[in-house]
Simulated scan of single mutants.
Amino acid sequence: MINIALQGAEFFAYHGFYPEEQKIGCRFLVDVNVGFVPPGDLLEDNLSKTVDYERVYIIVCEEMKHPRKLIETVGQSIIDRIKKKYPFAESIEVTIKKLTPPLSGKVAHSAVIINYKKS
């Protein structure tokens, strides 16, 4: 199995349950790990035989642009799109961190981690 990863992709987005969060926005960090068995010989040196992390980044960018109340929803949408683009993906983990969430005390970030494993 091979894994590709994006770590610490940073976005300013408007996700949040409270209307103020959807108006003022917040910074987010996104990590994505995709485990897969190549659908062919990697020695062919062909991008179609692997998961293209540039395409994964584009998927994340597009999903982060759509405001949602729950970052869980954003994470699941990212996973669903990666599964569709790369049906040979065996596992996908998406972590979304909301930096300085609006809480009553100082918190570096809140986070959701969503995992997918092909059955």
Rank of each mutant, 00 (worst) to 15 (best):
M1C: 08
N3G: 10
N3D: 06
I4L: 12
A5P: 12
A5V: 10
L6F: 04
Q7K: 15
G8M: 02
G8K: 00
G8W: 01
A9M: 15
A9W: 02
E10Y: 05
F11E: 01
F11Q: 01
F11C: 02
A13M: 04
A13L: 08
A13T: 00
Y14F: 15
H15Y: 11
G16V: 06
F17K: 11
Y18H: 14
P19S: 03
E20A: 14
E21D: 08
Q22D: 00
C26S: 14
C26R: 10
C26E: 11
F28D: 07
F28G: 02
L29V: 02
D31C: 02
V32D: 01
G35R: 14
G35Q: 11
P38L: 07
G40Y: 13
D41G: 07
L42P: 03
L43K: 15
L47A: 14
L47F: 10
K49V: 14
T50K: 05
T50W: 03
T50G: 09
T50S: 02
V51R: 14
V51P: 07
D52G: 12
D52C: 00
Y53M: 08
Y53Q: 00
E54P: 10
E54S: 12
V56M: 03
Y57S: 13
I58G: 08
I59G: 01
V60S: 07
C61G: 11
C61M: 09
E63M: 07
M64A: 02
M64N: 04
K65H: 06
H66N: 09
H66I: 12
K69C: 07
L70Q: 05
I71L: 03
E72F: 01
E72P: 06
T73R: 14
G75C: 02
G75I: 00
Q76H: 13
S77E: 12
S77R: 12
S77I: 05
S77Q: 11
I78G: 03
I78S: 02
K84Q: 15
K84H: 14
F88W: 07
F88E: 04
A89I: 10
A89W: 03
A89S: 06
S91V: 04
S91Y: 10
I92R: 04
I92E: 01
E93A: 08
V94K: 04
T95N: 07
T95G: 09
T95M: 11
I96S: 10
K97V: 05
K97M: 07
K97D: 01
K98S: 08
L99M: 06
L99F: 01
P101Q: 09
P102H: 12
P102F: 00
S104F: 12
G105C: 13
G105I: 15
G105M: 09
K106P: 10
V107Y: 11
V107S: 03
A108E: 12
A108R: 15
H109N: 15
S110M: 06
I113S: 15
N115A: 13
K117C: 13
K118R: 09
K118A: 07
S119T: 14
S119G: 15
